[in-house]
Computed example of a mutant assay.
Amino acid sequence: MTVHEAAVMEALERVIDPEIHRPLPDLGMIKGIDIDGGRVTVHVLLTTSGCPLRGTITADVEEEVGKVEGVEGVEVTMGVMDDDQKKALREKLTGHAEREIPFTKADSLTRVIAVTSGKGGVGKSSITANMAVALAGQGLKVGVLDADIYGFSLPRMLGITHEPQSIDGMIVPPIGTDGVKVISIGMFVPEGQPIIWRGPMLHRALQQFLADVFWGDLDVLLIDMPPGTGDVAISIAQLLPNAEILIVTTPQIAAAEVAERSGSIATQTRQRVIGVVENMAYLTQADGSRLEIFGSGGGDTVSAHLGALLGYQVPLLAQVPLDIALREGGDSGVPIASSTAAHHASPTATELRTLAAKLAEHSRGLAGRPLGVAPVRR
Rank of each mutant, 00 (worst) to 15 (best):
H4E: 14
M9L: 14
V15T: 12
V15S: 13
I16T: 15
R22C: 04
P25N: 13
I35R: 08
S49P: 01
G50K: 08
C51K: 14
G55W: 05
T58Q: 11
A59S: 15
A59Q: 13
V65H: 08
G66F: 11
E72D: 10
M81S: 08
D84I: 11
K86I: 06
K86T: 07
E91H: 04
G118C: 07
G120L: 12
A134I: 11
L135D: 04
G137D: 07
L154P: 03
R156F: 03
L158K: 05
H162R: 10
Q165L: 13
I171W: 00
V172W: 04
I175D: 02
G192R: 00
Q193N: 05
R198V: 09
L202S: 01
L202I: 14
L202W: 02
F209G: 14
D212A: 15
V213I: 10
F214L: 12
F214K: 13
F214Y: 15
W215A: 15
W215R: 15
D217F: 03
T229A: 11
D231T: 03
V232F: 00
A237Q: 08
L239H: 12
N242F: 00
I247H: 02
E260M: 13
I265D: 06
G275L: 12
G288L: 11
E292P: 00
G299P: 08
T301E: 08
A304H: 15
Q319D: 02
I324G: 04
E328L: 15
G333H: 03
A337G: 04
H343R: 13
A360K: 12
A360T: 09
H362P: 00
P370N: 08
G372W: 02
P375C: 10
